[in-house]
Amino acid sequence: MEVMSKTLIEVRNLTKLYNGGLGKPITALQDVNFSVAKEEFFTIIGPSGCGKSTLLNLIAGLDKPSSGEVLVNGVKINKPNPQLMAIMFQEHALYNWRTVLRNVEFGLEIRGVSKAERRTKALHYIRLVGLQGFEDKYPNQLSGGMKQRAALARALSLETDILLMDEPFGALDEQTRLLLGLELTRIWQETKKTIIFVTHSLSEAAFLSDRILVMSARPGRVKRIYNVDIRRPRDPNSDEVNHIKALIWNEIKDEALSMMKGG
């Protein structure tokens, strides 16, 4: 990081307990601390079940922490703030009774934006994610990759500074995932957003991120944060990218194993 970067998001001592039934609490997150700079592409990686989604939901204000806090621009988050953050889920979470266009319009509709304006905006973002021509299709008529593009357009249409993405391309095949990753990089550079990106894919993490946070298995803790100082545009098969992948894999391997043994 050559320039002094300004902190945008701060996660402080975040702990989350879930009621595991039978009165036994599950510690999903324990004492998580990190901060994300403005316009940074920040990735969170960790074995499945380590608390990545929990963490992202807390940042989004969709859930309340058991202790600790999330600050954005120094202000505490305790409920969703659609002016500030948009979130995208692994399951596309599109409304299958609405066309692509009306799905993308949804957030603006809630915001009370006029019909003409939200149409213009929605069409703009549909074009940006490369879905022009599919405005009037229903989600069921789209391929997996196209659904995620539509979900991305819906998140972008809110024009927030922050974009939270929970394994957005996790259900896609390798090629589609790479392609969407490329486009996401382009859109990120164009729109100058701050992105927190959750994934379990090493390639995705190494290829996309400025920094990578590796989480430990249950209870979820910050294990280590890596800087990825590779110049963009990146080549997904370059030695530098592979080197980062190897580093993270070594870090994560034991966690994944212990997770599997732990059941």
């Binding site: 969709l62 948009a86 949804f106 957030g107």
Partner: peptide, 26 residues
């Protein structure tokens, strides 16, 4: 699906709006 409801909340929908724009149609 809870994720549909979550998505609506994240876009700023109130409980009532979520009920008639998401839960009923779903």
């Amino acid at each position: 699906d809870v994720v549909l409801v979550k998505a609506a909340y994240s876009m700023g929908a109130s409980k009532l709006t979520t009920f008639y724009k998401v839960i009923i149609p779903a």
